[in-house]
Write a protein that binds this DNA or RNA. Structure first.
Lengths: 114, 114
DNA sequence: TGGGTACATACCCGCAAGGCTACATACTTG
DNA sequence: CAAGTATGTAGCCTTGCGGGTATGTACCCA
């Protein structure tokens, strides 16, 4: 359904990232692939709930599934996060300036206190 | 209510970013501060809706307000995005590897077609 | 001090999201 | 092919979210 190069609209990705259960799934898949059952065991909710979360992640392009006998093996598709990173890039310069200013301010404060 | 160094839990930030209207507000504030009215005019929804969106953004630490006569002037607090950037960092290495592999694959395909 | 301006809050509504139980599907194996 | 295993789907319920209208609240100015 989703070719290997598919990157969902950032909207769907951010929507998917908004849920902590789904972020937990991503965290696990960051280290290794996992079956739906393994992922379900790691979450405090029942299987069907996990299935739906996995569907959201799939439709956002964040994970891939392959079937192996009765098992569905899920794998991370980190490139789906690229649009989010690009979006963030537009703001990165701003907070870097601000943090620099803050550090300068702190340094100045220390000096003044001497 | 929120001191200048306050950074909300990433959870609230991602939740706030999930809504397109709120992302529009951030995009506007990226360029310049704006009053609530100006922000409302830029969105296709009524004032009270905008007020609520602004509240969510405030509580996530993404914007700051200051009052000037009857006007509330909103400004971006880009440092609230730092946790999201840090979170993304854990995945960046992964997609960079993958994209490298993809490019290699494409290059190989081109070569083979010659 | 009364009227106008700029926002926020209160309240209601409709819908989508997330949880659960029950059931269907698909594959393996005796 | 029957039983078991692994997972997804259907249907139901509750809650939260986003949108709207009506109503404060705070400030300026004549």
């Amino acid at each position: 359904m989703y070719p290997y190069w598919y990157i969902a609209a950032m909207d769907a990705v951010l929507q998917a990232l908004a849920d902590p259960s789904r972020r937990t799934v991503l965290k696990i898949l960051r280290d290794h692939e996992a079956t739906a059952g393994e992922l379900a065991d790691a979450l405090p909710i029942a299987r069907p709930g996990v299935s739906r979360h996995l569907r959201v992640l799939r439709e956002a392009g964040l994970v891939d599934v392959r079937q192996e006998a009765q098992r569905r093996i899920y794998a991370l598709r980190p490139e789906a996060l690229v649009p989010v990173d690009d979006w963030l890039a537009d703001y990165r310069a701003l907070w870097e300036n601000r943090l620099d200013a803050l550090h300068t301010e702190i340094a100045r404060g220390k000096k003044a206190r001497k």
